[in-house]
Design a protein around this nucleic acid. Structure first.
Lengths: 336, 336
DNA sequence: GTGAAAGCGCTAACAG
DNA sequence: CTGTTAGCGCTTTCAC
């Protein structure tokens, strides 16, 4: 005989108890709880509902998951929930998921690829019904992941990845438009602060900047590599300020970097936008509260999140994806 | 005969398959997977491990949960993950939980108490092993929650609540010290921007401010109520600037409000700290990147999160709690 | 050292 | 319209 552990004292109340209390079978309880698949006589149903109420019965989600093979759980892995962009994305996903009756299992990778891989494995073994990945991994790495057929979308990813549904924003165009705006202000020296550079897969923001710069026939523009953090932007800007000639404008690949750059410029006594104009990417909340407020590129995060959740639930995620348009948000850091 | 749905195609590989492949019984597989409760001969164990490897077997977390009555899941409900303080807390909790083999079920209440209640019910019915609440609710409301014996801690809560373990920071003292610091700079008019005011349960930050002000024998200091957002701080500061006499210093109940206040002052052309000094509470990352950088009160979030997770796992959470010390972080907004 | 089997709570096919 | 029952994948007692 096994020793079923009496389920810890908690969730004592089971479907059995409800059935007994209402004087029906467990099947009937199921039918009323799930509103199907069979019909139940109105007053029987009422009795059951009362029993549920009285006993404060709550279905056991794991028994259900075991039986059905689906959990109503979505897994999300983010590099660092502390970054406003990821927090905003998480919130949007949570909202979209909740609206469909799904809860969110959150894993934070601490900006570490190894951690990310183990997080993904963990979520998969917890049988999430779908996975949204805000990933640090490269495409070949993604291919080696063992998802056991868990539907997965890569979020904020331009391009496609076999085995995944890719949801992204038209970042190339977004950056291009922002830089063109800077060009429109008459700037001829627009250096790029770029958060991460992968020689195999140039970032669309870099591509957009570079296209705008080329089109404007500006020459030899500088790229200052760093990472996607305030500190990274700060240090990159310090390096830029330490060398000559100074650019008249800077495009930063994220608002976070722009915030760092702003600090470096203030500390050095350079005025934004008078001495150096600035624009960036993401449109996090903070962008409106910097001084000057950031001209930046807005991503339709809510739409993207909704689409991600929909794709996972509808389940056609083995390939393809969606690209969303961005929008230039003009504030003051560009000189407007 | 039932129709067990063949578990969706996914997680096809079960303990059965591994057992068959390794030529042992399912019990033995369990023993090696769980490293107990029985010992297994080394080479048998090796065979099983190879089978697991080859078949890429992953245990079904729900079957396990059903059997054991515990899920290795912690639920967390936050008012708004988008706010840096909650994001930082979530990250710290995730870290602490992961270190103990627990995953995090995240629910965002969108700053809505009704939503929060339903979130809590949802997490409880999903049988989380513990709940950490960053709550909007009042103490009486908390008492009415149906937790079904789920261990729960209220996070960032000063005082105690029956039925919960309360983890908080010594916010009264923290605010007191910050305001005293302002007093030390010679300020005699220190108005308070307070994010939310509940007449029944005055916020410890308000208490700390008020104690410091009283001790310094300053009279009739003003309180400007608002909410815990950038916009709230912005508007509160606009109101303050619109009336006379102007204070020489402002204490804000959160960094977010301080960020908003900073914007209002810049727009009005008042210099910080020369015209009006500023200090606040929380020490979110952004506090270091504002201009001037914020003098603020730091909470030991990581320690608090670790303690919360530990309490939930150890399971002695029906009462009591822990209070953590804060630390004044002096930067430039105060005039230093 | 290994295996058989019960049963966690639930769903749904089938019988009545 | 209602009841009986198998079985989802797992753990663990008990027997060998």
């Amino acid at each position: 005989m096994p020793e079923p552990k009496k389920t810890s004292v908690r969730d004592r109340v089971t479907r059995q108890d409800v059935a007994r209390f209402a004087g029906v079978s467990t099947a009937v309880v199921s039918y009323v709880v799930n509103d199907g698949p069979k019909r139940v006589a109105p007053d029987t149903a009422e009795r059951v509902r009362r029993a549920i109420e009285v006993l404060r019965y709550q279905p056991n989600a794991h028994a259900r998951a075991l039986r059905l093979g689906s959990t109503n759980l979505l897994g999300i892995v983010v590099p660092d929930i502390t970054k406003p962009f990821f927090a905003a994305t998480t919130e949007a996903l949570e909202r979209a998921a909740a609206a469909e009756g799904y809860a969110l299992l959150l894993a934070d990778s601490a900006s570490d690829r190894q951690r990310e891989k183990s997080n993904i494995g963990n979520l998969v073994s917890r049988q999430v019904d779908g996975l949204v990945l805000l990933t640090l991994l490269t495409e070949p790495e993604l291919a080696t992941l063992s998802l056991r057929d868990t539907p997965a979308v890569v979020f904020n990813w331009s391009g496609t990845v076999p085995g995944f549904y890719a949801i992204g924003a038209a970042a190339e165009t977004g950056a291009y438009n922002a830089v063109r705006h800077l060009v429109g202000h008459g700037h001829k020296d627009i250096t790029l602060i770029m958060g991460a550079r992968d020689p195999n897969r140039p970032d669309p923001r870099e591509l957009g900047w570079s296209r705008a710069v080329r089109e404007a026939k500006l020459e030899e523009q500088r790229i200052e590599g760093t990472d996607f953090t305030r500190l990274g932007g700060y240090q990159a800007m310090q390096r830029i300020l330490a060398s000559r000639p100074l650019p008249t404008a800077v495009y930063a690949s994220s608002d976070l970097e722009a915030i760092g750059a702003l600090r470096a410029m203030r500390e050095a006594g350079v005025q934004v936008p008078e001495d150096i104009a600035l624009a960036s990417f993401d449109d996090i909340v903070d962008a409106e509260y910097t001084w000057p407020a950031l001209t930046t590129v807005r991503l339709p995060i809510v739409d993207m999140a909704t689409a991600a959740v929909a794709a996972l639930i509808r389940g056609d995620t083995s390939t393809g994806g969606q690209l969303f348009d961005t929008q230039l948000v003009v504030r003051h850091s560009c000189g407007c």
